[in-house]
Write a protein that binds this DNA or RNA. Sequence first.
DNA 1: ATAAACCTTAGAGTCAACTCCAGGGTCAAG
DNA 2: CTTGACCCTGGAGTTGACTCTAAGGTTTAT
Lengths: 166, 166
Amino acid sequence: MYRIGELAKQCQVKADTLRFYEKHGLLAPSVRSDAGYRLYSNMDAARLRFILRAKAVGFSLNEIAELLSIELDKANWACADVKGMVDTKLVQVQLKLAELEHFRDSLQSLSEACCGGPESAEHCSILEALESSSQAVRREAGTACEPQIQVHANNKAQAKLGRQSC
Amino acid sequence: MYRIGELAKQCQVKADTLRFYEKHGLLAPSVRSDAGYRLYSNMDAARLRFILRAKAVGFSLNEIAELLSIELDKANWACADVKGMVDTKLVQVQLKLAELEHFRDSLQSLSEACCGGPESAEHCSILEALESSSQAVRREAGTACEPQIQVHANNKAQAKLGRQSC
DNA sequence: ATAAACCTTAGAGTCAACTCCAGGGTCAAG
DNA sequence: CTTGACCCTGGAGTTGACTCTAAGGTTTAT
Ligand SMILES: [Zn+2]
Ligand SMILES: [Zn+2]
Ligand SMILES: [Zn+2]
Ligand SMILES: [Zn+2]
C-alpha cells in the first residue's frame, strides 16, 4: 500500500494530479487509512500506469475513462470497440499533424525568405508576406529583403537598383 | 467603412471575435458611428487579414500582438527580430510535431496489433499493451488477439493451441 | 408603427488538465 | 512536546481563444 505522495513520486506525477484523477473518476484508492489517508494498492498503481500509458499515446482523460470502463468489463466489449477508439484517435492525430505540417511549411518559407540581418524591417519579406493577400511568400522583384546567401551574391546588383538590402 | 457584422462575414469570423480582438488590443475600429457602432476602414480590414494570416501560420494572439507592434514601427526593428520570432515559432511547431508523430506511431502499432473483430476484448492486444509495462506492443505467443490478416492464416493453428482468437 | 435584423455593454461560461491555496489534521523523530 | 514532513478538504486560479447571455438601443423595410 502506498500513500499518495509515494505513488505520485513512483509514477512521476504530483499528488494533486492523483486527487484530480480521483475527482474525475479515473482512479480511486481502494482503501483509506483511519486518518483518512488514501492508500493505493498494487492494482491501483497498475491502473495509474494504464492511465499514464494511454496518455502517452495521446488519449484525453475522457477517452481514458472510456478505455478504463472497457478494461473493467472486457468480456462485454469487442476488439472492434477498442480498435475503433484507437483508430478514431489516430485520425484526429493525423488531422492535427497535417495542420502542424502546414504551419511548419509556411513558417519555413517565411524564414527562408528573410535575410535575418540587423537592417531595418521596413522591407522585411516576412512582414510583407503577412500584409499581402497571397498565401505564398511573394517576391516582388527588388523590393523586399532576401535571404543572406543571396544578399552577398547580389549585393552590387541590388545597390545598382537603388534597393535597400534589408 | 464596414460595420462589425459586415467585416466579420467578409473575413469568416464572428462579430464576437472582433470584439474580443479589440478588447485584447489587436484590432480597434478607427471610427464609431453616432450611435456607437464600430466602423472599420479598409486599413482596419487589412490589419484583420494580417492577424488571420499570422494565425494561419500558427502564431498565438500574443505573438501576433507583438508582430503588429513591429508592423506599426518597422523602422525601429530589424529583420533579425522578425525572423527570430518566426524561427522560435518554427521550433515550437517542430517539437509539437515530433510529439504528435510519436502519438501517431504508437497508435498505429496498437491498431495494427488488434484484430478489430466482434470477439470479446478479453485478449485484446491493445488493452494488454496498455496494461503491461512495455512501451511497444508486446506479443506473448498465443495469448493476445492479432490482426485479421493473420487470423485467417493461423486460424487452425490457433484453434489447436486452445487459443481464443480474440 | 412595428417587426426583423442589426448593434451596444459588462460580465459569465467553456474546454482540458492540471495547479495552487488556506486552514486544518496526522505521524515519526529527537 | 515540538518540529517538520506528510496528509486532508473545498474551492479558486491558470492558459488561450473564444462564445454566449442579458438587457437594452438603432436601422431598415413594410
Ligand atoms: Zn531582411
Ligand atoms: Zn526580413
Ligand atoms: Zn482482437
Ligand atoms: Zn483487440
